[in-house]
Design a protein around this nucleic acid. Structure first.
Length: 823
RNA sequence: GCCUGGGUGGCGGAAUAGGCAGACGCAAGGGACUUAAAAUCCCUUGGAGGUUUCCUCCGUGCGGGUUCGAUUCCCGCCCCAGGCACCA
């Protein structure tokens, strides 16, 4: 064995052995229990960053552990290869997006290999490969045929900088998720996926995803935003009716006005006879032009339409306003306004001097219209509500809803915040949408035999004015597959989140000449553990769930949900901020590997914090991990002469003294590491347990002449190497072969701990007096309360504390604690 | 504003089911080895105090409560991070 630990030599050696022998290649094997471990695949931005290394180190621990546990482990890696940065590189440096992307992939793949992750590289996929996006186009057409992909003219989020449309999920605080530019609204005809058809199921299954962190589920539930209420038709005085949605039917007697969105289809009709028609129209146009979410900061504004509705409950005449705070996309785009019990309506009423009528009294205080300075939105007793007065508001909601249905004025209804997913992107570097526009036939999907619609290579990318594909005449001009007349291709490409919505299914059969090989997909899916950043809580993770349900309904997969367990890892932070070029606090994994080796880098990222938490990068901390691996090396090197030709301890004979102590510590560590990996994903405490074991072994004094002792030591070293191997695989492989291991350590079985040795014959019992620790005694385990008490009451310290006091009670937790309570 | 997390030494973090708070690592200080340095090894390290091989008191954001016993459970508050935000 080498005198010194030399990570670079060892790591290179084992990485090539693993590769040559195809150690991580996986095939379906019905005789073995499958285990699909997946980390979110990276965008090939150019270089691997610490966040990736952390993500993949976590996944690799689990994958390696599960393999040793005997599972048939699928652990693939690929590239989310379409996207805007490639095009920006083209604009800035004149390099073709394909070239840029492929070079990045090549470089990053080398980086990943240098870290020794146990991937089956034969399954590698890139979403920009024709063989991948062909099937995405195929699926798009299936969705188009069933109405799940459709085109509509609507107001969409537009990023001026990226020159493209964004989905609602990609707008963060009114800004573009990628570049941070303020998003504006534009009226465009765009492609959408009908995710809203699945809103109820996506919501319902949130309760069934028990392996997901609660906070992700909460975010998804809120994003779907289902609320229960009732839709009511209010007759318009001059004819027709206005449909509103409310969650507060209990307040219908408090309506003093109505508000509709400027985009409401009835708006022009309603204002026709208005005395100040021009002014109203101006207002409408001004608000419509105004962007976005019509930010909450904006003051409420509105204008009277000149029209009135009738409140069917009491026959009152109610003025109808156009208001800037009413959104067309939610509910029905029209609301009933109850200023006494809704803050927005209250503000509006105050501004325009509209009446406020209290119809819910809270009980403990009495609301008075004159003195109210804000709306009361809580529960209470209904008042001024005709036959419903006196009913508690919660009960009133039900009663009014039933009444509305009985009278035929409306019906129970649900409203959702979730909107359909806008997937058109006016960009080049993405999957072309396989649709052809024909003057005679309309929208015609590209026939399956003509797939794929290949993204042309010779495209000029200028970064302005529409999709680059629209300038490519050979691409655009095409014959209609239906009638053969001149037609034009769709020039938009798909949102890259479409690419990542089904890649985990494709990993099961990457070489399949078809969409998915159902047999193989059935064997591997669903993913048993999915690991990635929390930032995808409502983007990728919602889309992927939606796609899986669509595929299921198409009969292409048999599962309802793609990911059984989800582990969301925290960011890698340095000096209190996320690593970024602009802050200049980036630590390059390559530099660290060069300095300490991959095992150290992996170990530090796993040791410094539990996976869900943000991790503070520490230059000193990683040195500590490097020192630890050196200590491991030395302790093995120094014991090697004693254990080289000794078999590990196996007998059932009763061990004594220090041999017994060592074996006990070994099996305790094994138990701890096993449990920490398997049931908690707490790698930091697993590693600290291994550190304790190493500390113990290195101070343990072996007796050269004691064959039993040597075999116990051999078992200790073997166990150490095995349980450390998922975290720091290279050094462990090297030591394993030095120990005489013939095959790679990855074929070694994860050992079972011996419960017998863990049974304590002597236990330390903490003695408390009135809840304060006063003494500790070592006694035989299983001692009864009376026996223990007899011993404890004789102890000097205990007697001192009990002097002059009467023992009132004793609490005894067997083998743990004795609490003596006095008067 | 609403919804989630979270607040423990100088720092990262442990304490898994209410039972010894501070495991493990970092940093710091002292010592050994060395001509010297690096590396390594040993010791100390939450705070205050004392009669200093030991002992006492205080201590997990703040204030209460439940309990023999609370970092852990309950109530009220403060602060930090993330998500949503005119959603009717």
């Amino acid at each position: 064995m080498e005198e010194r630990y030399n990570p670079h030599v060892i790591e290179e050696k084992w990485q090539s052995i693993w590769e040559e022998r195809g150690c991580f290649n996986t095939e379906e094997d019905p005789s073995k229990q499958k285990m699909y471990i997946l980390e979110m695949f990276p965008y090939p931005s150019g270089r691997i960053h610490m966040g990736h290394v952390r993500n993949y180190s976590i996944g690799d621990v689990i994958a390696r552990y599960m393999r040793m546990k005997g599972y048939n482990v699928l652990h693939p890696m690929g590239w989310d290869a379409f996207g805007l940065p490639a095009e920006n590189a083209a604009i800035e440096h004149g390099v073709h997006p394909a070239k840029w992307t492929l070079e990045n992939i090549e470089y990053m793949k080398k980086q990943l290999k240098r870290l020794g992750f146990s991937y089956d590289w034969r399954r590698e996929i890139s979403t920009c490969d024709i063989s991948y996006y062909k099937w995405e186009q195929w699926l798009f057409i299936k969705m188009f045929e069933r109405g799940l992909a459709y085109k509509k003219f609507s107001s969409v989020n537009w990023c001026e900088r990226c020159q493209t449309v964004l989905a609602n999920e990609q707008v963060e605080g009114g800004c573009c998720w990628r570049c941070g530019t303020q998003v504006v609204q534009r009226e465009l005809e765009q492609w959408f996926f009908k995710i809203t058809d699945y809103a109820d199921e996506l919501l319902e299954y949130c309760d069934k995803l028990q392996g997901w962190p609660e906070r992700v589920l909460v975010m998804q539930r809120n994003w779907i935003g289902k609320s229960e209420g009732v839709e009511i038709e209010f007759p318009i005085e001059k004819g027709g009716s206005l449909r509103i949605f409310t969650t507060r039917p209990d307040t219908v007697f408090g309506i003093t006005f109505m508000c509709i969105a400027p985009e409401h289809p009835l708006v022009l009709d309603l204002i026709k006879d208005s005395s100040n028609y021009k002014e109203v129209l101006e207002f409408i146009n001004r608000v419509r032009r105004m962007s976005v979410s019509r930010e909450a900061i904006l003051e409420k504004e509105g204008i009277f339409t000149g029209a009135y509705c009738i409140n069917p409950f009491n026959g009152e005449r109610i003025p109808v306003f156009v208001a800037n705070f009413v959104i067309m996309e939610y509910g029905t785009g029209a609301i009933m306004s109850v200023p006494a019990h809704d803050q927005r309506d209250f503000e509006f009423a105050k501004k325009y001097n509209l009446p406020i009528r209290v119809v819910i009294q809270p009980g403990e205080s009495i609301l008075d219209t004159e003195t109210m300075d804000k709306a009361y939105e809580g529960e209470g007793i209904m008042v001024n509500s005709g036959p419903f007065s006196g009913i508690p508001s919660e009960e009133g909601k039900k009663r009014i809803t039933e009444y509305v249905e009985k009278m035929g004025w409306g019906k129970r209804a649900y409203s959702y915040k979730l909107r359909d997913w806008g997937i058109s992107r006016q960009r080049y570097w993405g999957c072309p949408i396989p649709i052809i526009y024909c003057e005679r036939c309309g929208m015609v999907p590209v026939p399956e035999k003509d797939l794929p619609v290949v993204l042309p290579f010779d495209v000029e990318i200028r970064g302005e004015k529409g999709s680059p594909l629209s300038y490519h005449k050979k691409f655009v001009n095409v014959k209609c597959p239906n009638c053969g007349l001149e037609a034009k291709r769709e020039t938009d490409t798909m949102d890259t989140f479409v690419d990542s919505s089904w890649y985990f299914e494709r990993f099961c059969c990457p070489d399949h000449d078809g969409f998915l090989d159902s047999k193989r997909v059935k064997y591997w899916m669903p993913v048993d553990l999915y690991i990635g950043g929390i930032e995808h809580a409502v983007l990728h993770l919602l889309y992927a769930r939606f796609f899986t349900k669509v595929l299921r309904d198409f009969g292409l997969v048999e599962i309802n949900e793609p990911f059984i367990n989800l582990l969301t890892q925290g960011m890698v932070i340095k000096d209190g901020a996320k690593m970024s070029k602009s802050k200049g606090n980036v630590v390059d994994p390559d530099d660290m590997i060069r300095k300490y080796g991959a095992d150290t880098v992996r170990l530090f990222l796993l040791f410094a914090a539990p996976p869900e938490k943000d991790l503070d990068w520490s230059d000193k901390g990683i040195e500590g991990c490097y020192r630890f691996l050196n200590r491991v090396w030395r302790v093995v090197r120094d014991t090697m002469p004693l254990i080289k030709d000794t078999p590990p301890y196996k007998d059932k004979i009763k061990l004594e003294g220090s041999n017994r102590q060592l074996r006990k510590i070994v099996h305790k560590s094994l138990k701890k590491v096993t449990e920490d990996i398997e049931s908690r994903y707490h790698f930091n405490t697993a590693i600290s347990a291994i550190m304790e074991l190493v500390n113990y072994i290195s101070q343990w004094k072996p007796d050269v002449n004691d064959a039993v002792g040597r075999s116990v030591l051999r078992e200790a070293i073997e166990t150490l190497v095995i349980i450390l191997s998922p975290f720091a695989p290279h050094i462990c492989e090297e030591i394993w072969s030095e120990l005489g291991g013939k095959r790679s350590l990855i074929y070694e079985k994860w050992p079972e701990y011996d419960p017998e040795i863990l049974e304590e014959e002597d236990v330390l019992i903490v003695v408390q007096i009135n809840g304060r620790v006063r003494d500790r005694v070592i006694v035989a385990s299983g001692i009864t309360r009376d026996e223990l008490l007899k011993i404890v009451l004789e102890r000097e310290k205990v007697r001192m504390y009990l002097r002059g006091k009467n023992v009132k009670n004793t609490i005894y937790i067997p083998d743990k604690i004795l609490n003596i309570v006095t008067d």
